[in-house]
């Protein structure tokens, strides 16, 4: 019998693995001749992957009716934020190297603005991810606040689209997935309300 606790444990540790793998490959020189770029791209892809994965949890729960899967959502979401934070810091420190350069890019480049906006929307979600924060905010407020994950995902995909050149098809698949998840969520909420008003 798989308990929610086991699902949570697996999600926490499993989500850390790709990051550890990147760190290890970096340390032994397996990230190619320009490791900064590999670090930047790989952490960005991971953040996007975990963002989509955390959104997919609700959908999979709805499809399967298997309750323990819900326990995976918080670890996936927190790790999405951690990978996004790593992505931002790598860009700031290793890629730009100087606040003035970063500021100039942020002021002028659409993809930087989209990425920063996505990050700013994710930050309060990560900060309010603890049980204590949930109690303090109360459940209805917390739920409303966490709807921000949807615009954050749209912005993150916009960012990925703007920086990609030959990966556009992959971004489009993810965008289609996001639309599908959002529609199913809306449909499910509407159906739920209809049932409750009857």
């Amino acid at each position: 019998m798989i308990s929610p606790r086991l699902v949570r444990c697996l999600a926490w540790t499993g989500s850390a693995l790709p990051g550890l793998l990147i760190l290890g490959r970096w340390q032994v020189g397996l990230l190619g001749v320009v490791p900064t770029e590999a670090l930047l791209h790989q952490t960005g892809r991971l953040a996007l992957f975990f963002l989509m994965a955390s959104l997919a949890v609700g959908f999979l729960h709805f499809l399967s009716g298997w309750n323990p899967i819900v326990a995976a959502r918080r670890p996936l979401g927190v790790w999405c934020f951690l990978y996004a934070l790593a992505h931002l810091l790598i860009w700031l420190i290793l890629d730009q190297g100087h606040p003035a350069f970063a500021w100039a890019e942020a002021r002028m480049m659409r993809h930087v603005q989209l990425g920063l906006a996505a990050f700013l929307l994710l930050a309060p979600l990560a900060l309010s991810s603890s049980d204590r924060a949930l109690r303090w905010l109360t459940h209805p407020v917390w739920r409303r606040l966490h709807l921000l994950v949807w615009p954050a995902a749209a912005l993150a995909l916009g960012h990925a689209w703007a920086v990609s050149r030959f990966e556009n098809p992959r971004v489009m698949v993810m965008a289609a997935l996001l639309v599908m998840l959002a529609m199913s969520r809306i449909g499910w909420t509407l159906a739920h309300r209809l049932r409750n008003t009857r």
Binding site: A104, E105, M108, M109, R110, A162, V163
Partner: peptide, 9 residues
């Protein structure tokens, strides 16, 4: 500017 690369640096 290039759409993806801010060319000042």
């Amino acid at each position: 500017r290039h759409p993806r690369w801010h060319q000042a640096t």
